[in-house]
Design a protein around this nucleic acid. Sequence first.
DNA 1: CGGGTTTTCTGGAACGAGTCAAGAGAACAC
DNA 2: GTGTTCTCTTGACTCGTTCCAGAAAACCCG
Lengths: 151, 151
Amino acid sequence: MPVTRSDELATRLREVGLRVTGPRLAVLSVLAGRAHVDVETVRGAVHDRLGGVSTQAVYDVLRAFTVAGLVRRIEPAGRPALFETRTGDNHHHIVCRTCGTVSDIDCVVGAAPCLEPSSAPPGFLVDEAEVTFWGVCANCQSKNREGIDHL
Amino acid sequence: MPVTRSDELATRLREVGLRVTGPRLAVLSVLAGRAHVDVETVRGAVHDRLGGVSTQAVYDVLRAFTVAGLVRRIEPAGRPALFETRTGDNHHHIVCRTCGTVSDIDCVVGAAPCLEPSSAPPGFLVDEAEVTFWGVCANCQSKNREGIDHL
DNA sequence: CGGGTTTTCTGGAACGAGTCAAGAGAACAC
DNA sequence: GTGTTCTCTTGACTCGTTCCAGAAAACCCG
């Protein structure tokens, strides 16, 4: 059962001027249920729910959502893109170097761009400060300690 | 003529325990001459200098350099990876959304990770705070104004 | 300085993520 | 309903990057 009712999702779509279709409702519902999802996971979940979708449709839907501001696309270096429904608050992310898990970090400062560059090139118009924290999560740290003698 | 003398570059390689080879010297010299370089540019420049290199060699060399801490790899979302020789000072980057040009921004705070997450998951060991500023550079702003009636 | 070991480089195939293109098929406006 | 416009399907394709096997070069040691 979707976390959010389907007519509510449909309304959200119409509000931003997007047509309501099966794949779109399904994608939105999947995204509403989890914090950070990659394309393949979306495709899988939507496929199960609808009994088939093309990869292309998933990419198209996600792009439309991103342009409409319904979802935010994040792309940690070297990893496939992730999508999240938490938008507009310019929060940040913390990524585990080992397992790739991404968590949200509330913005230290208030509104976007939330940080000012100390010495931007003249005339540069900054609209966003993206902060990514990198490290190793508790889970991977303990796994690493266990597995150290297998190497 | 390279910005840095070739025996000096060779010394730098040996210092970090890397063998000295033609491709490595050439790559290091190319990187030393510019702030942010993508793989294709490196390959082109090295090819001209040496009369031929495989793409693979360039990737291998850059990976070895990155692991050794000789260069830093940055990967702005949706763009091919860039390499820079300025390492160890945890400075940040500002990227133009239109032309993709990357410039350095001095770190606001002192040492890495230079920013502390306000609410990291318990046990998470943060080692780096990566900050990327996004916007439009002066150049692209004026080009956009000129070209607006062609659209 | 020559021989053996280790590492690096070459060439070519392969991969994953993402995009492009043309047409069939739905959603909406009237 | 009907026509227009947008969306989805299928399938080929690009791009950045990696994997593989073998040839070649750099280093270490006697």
